[in-house]
């Protein structure tokens, strides 16, 4: 049995130190440092291409995202040598930004795959939690016939049903209309209440508003971590009208303030 320490609410669940990841010879993550507290919703903001998804893949242990340098600790344990499966079994999972499609696999089966003791009632509840009517969706296939937004919601339902210890949600709000954005926020809160720590990758202010902490990712590094409003504000100021040379100056200015 792997030893599982249970850090309390004031302790770090995930500690990433000096993470370097290269893709096809190009450095993408260039020394990421990130601490996610147990029981929190921690948002990661950043522009397109800043390395958010790369960080998610490196954390779950995806092939081709081996660390050049650095370490990843989950509840104090170094997980870098562990396979995706082993990390999954420790309760570290990912809702993909663009989830895969599966021929011939029903929504019911897919959602129950990560559950320790699959039962229909919980699968139904997970679908209701993402505003999908179980009667309409349980027997649908998780293939190309689901729309992009439906597929994203099924992905969230599957992660929720698994009751992971740390859920990485890569832009759970992309491709989802404003009306249901509220459902997504509710679900993330509910996951938190039920004991899941959430690393939430997103650009949407509405979603970041539910976070307890936020980090800003820029060009493969975490620029700052802190109060979500503060980080959001900084993201708006520094990144959005992004001209990188100008941005550094602005940031320096910002620092001086």
């Amino acid at each position: 049995m792997r030893q599982q320490t249970r850090p309390g609410p004031d302790q770090a669940l995930l500690q990433v130190t000096d993470l370097h990841v290269t893709r096809d010879g190009r450095p993408i993550l260039r020394g990421v440092n990130l601490t996610v507290m147990e029981g929190s919703i921690h948002a990661v903001l950043g522009l397109n291409g800043s390395g958010k998804s790369t960080l998610a893949y490196a954390l779950i242990g995806s092939a081709g995202y081996a660390l050049q340098r650095g370490e990843i600790r989950l509840a104090g344990e170094e997980i870098t040598p562990l396979s995706i499966t082993e990390r999954g079994r420790l309760g570290l999972t990912l809702a993909w930004q663009e989830p895969a499609r599966f021929e011939g696999l029903t929504v019911e089966r897919y959602v129950s795959l990560g559950m320790r003791e699959p039962d229909l009632q919980h699968v139904r509840q997970a679908l209701i939690a993402v505003a999908l009517d179980p009667d309409d969706y349980l027997h649908r296939y998780v293939d190309e016939s689901l729309s992009g937004g439906e597929r994203k919601r099924v992905e969230l339902a599957a992660v929720y049903a698994m009751r992971p210890r740390l859920a990485i949600l890569d832009e759970p709000d992309s491709g989802i209309d404003i009306l249901t954005l509220e459902d997504i926020s509710k679900l993330i809160r509910r996951m938190q209440r039920e004991g899941t720590t959430v690393l939430l990758i997103s650009h949407r202010d509405e979603v970041v508003a539910i976070a307890d902490a936020a980090s800003l990712m820029c060009e493969g590094q975490i620029q700052t971590t802190g109060d979500p409003r503060h980080v959001c504000d900084r993201y708006a100021r520094c990144c959005r009208p992004c001209d990188r040379a100008q941005k550094v100056e602005t940031e320096l200015d910002y620092e001086r303030l």
Binding site: I60, A63, I84, T85, G88, L92, P99, L113, M162
Partner: peptide, 11 residues
């Protein structure tokens, strides 16, 4: 991606 998705659920 299909494979890793399922593995990440602990399979």
């Amino acid at each position: 991606k299909e494979l890793e998705t399922l593995m990440s659920r602990g399979l």
